[in-house]
């Protein structure tokens, strides 16, 4: 993040107390899930040409004491902005919220987003709308997320909550102070590697990317580990050659990390490995046997069927011998068919 983003967040403004709890000024922190961010970016791409920014509602979960907000989901809300006034489609917002809550009953309204880093008096108005009593996030503060979407520049996200400003009610109604709060974008390993995969395609002519097989990704990670090892051993050899000032903390850390590998006798390893191999071979053997059995049973079953149609020539010799009887009594044939299956089931 840029230097200009340094700020301090120590206390949130004193909110109205929820029933039965003490009002608190504990600081707030926000967790941002990537899927919400992506749908905001998507919304920004689909906006009208003449719209500076678009807005939408953020949904998520709030921890019990309200100090941690997790933004999980969002949807767009149409609005129009001119120099003098701003209009937000409130009915749409209400209905969308109701529908969303029906689909995801655990999520609640946490705030709103805008796709521009700018804050202006309209932001204050919308913020007060989202934080109001009744339909808003009251008694919790509404979270405002700005995501800058200027093409060609890095995407910057910022999160705010608001505090009232002004000493008369009329002033306070359309103005507010935005308090920057820290946030964190949380993503899992699976999401990260998936994204890396997709972004690999952007540098290629045909805009496509091959999916790596297990063995290829194993190879790649081994190469990465080797590269890291190279770097570390460079440092260590520099220390040994007295070119770098040794840091005992770093050395201690390396030592601890390297001691993690248990010390095992090579003979033990070989024994364990052989045991394991035998297990694997046994499993493979059993699997093959079962497959053969299933195959066999299938063939026998279909053989019985073809026999039923009167054509005994193609059937197995054993079944063919009894073919004459079966032609007269279909019931008996079915019993026979079951009997053929029985050996395989054992």
């Amino acid at each position: 993040m840029a230097d200009a983003d340094s700020f301090l967040h120590l206390a949130r403004p004193l909110g109205p107390a929820a029933v039965g709890s003490q009002p608190s000024t504990a600081p707030l922190s926000i967790v941002l899930q990537p899927q919400a961010l992506f749908s905001i970016l998507d919304h920004s791409l689909r906006r009208n040409q003449d719209q500076e920014r678009v807005i939408g509602t953020l949904l998520g979960v709030r921890s019990e004491d309200g100090t941690e907000v997790e933004i999980r989901n969002c949807y767009a809300v149409p609005h129009t902005e001119t120099a003098e006034q701003v209009e937000v489609d409130m009915d749409y917002q209400k209905q969308m919220l109701a529908l969303h809550l029906r689909a995801n009953p655990r999520e609640v309204l946490v705030g709103w987003y805008a796709t521009s880093s700018e804050l202006n008096t309209f932001s204050a108005l919308i913020q007060n709308f989202y934080g109001q009593q009744g339909d808003g996030t009251w008694p919790h503060p509404a979270v405002h997320l700005t995501v800058s979407t200027v093409p060609g520049q890095d995407i910057e996200a910022r999160t705010y909550i608001s505090a009232p400003i002004g000493v008369t009610p009329e002033r306070a109604a359309d103005s507010c102070l935005f308090i920057p709060v820290p946030y964190e974008i949380k993503y899992g390993d699976a999401e990260k590697s998936g994204l890396e995969m997709i972004s690999g395609a952007k540098d290629r002519e045909d805009r496509s990317q091959e999916i790596l097989t297990d063995i290829e990704s194993l190879e790649r990670s081994i190469e990465q580990v080797l590269e890291m090892l190279e770097r570390v051993s460079n440092y260590v050899s520099n220390v040994l050659d007295e070119e770098t000032v040794p840091s005992s903390a770093l050395g201690q850390f390396l030592m601890n990390a390297l001691s993690l590998a248990p010390k095992v006798d090579p003979a033990d390893i070989e024994r364990d490995f052989n045991n394991h191999i035998q297990d694997v071979l046994m499993v493979a053997y059993l699997a093959n046997t079962i497959r053969t059995q299933i195959d066999l049973s299938n063939r026998l079953a279909t053989a019985a069927l073809t026999m039923g149609s009167g054509d005994a020539i193609g059937g197995p010799p054993g079944a063919g011998g009894e073919g004459g009887n079966q032609k007269n009594s279909p019931e008996n044939r079915r019993g026979k068919g079951r009997g053929q299956n029985r050996p395989q089931e054992q």
Partner: peptide
Amino acid sequence: MPAPTNTLLIEGSFEELAEELAR
């Protein structure tokens, strides 16, 4: 893009606001 420098958003001129605060 730097963070917005102004996070205090209130309408009204300096004189009006000063008078209100004084009162």
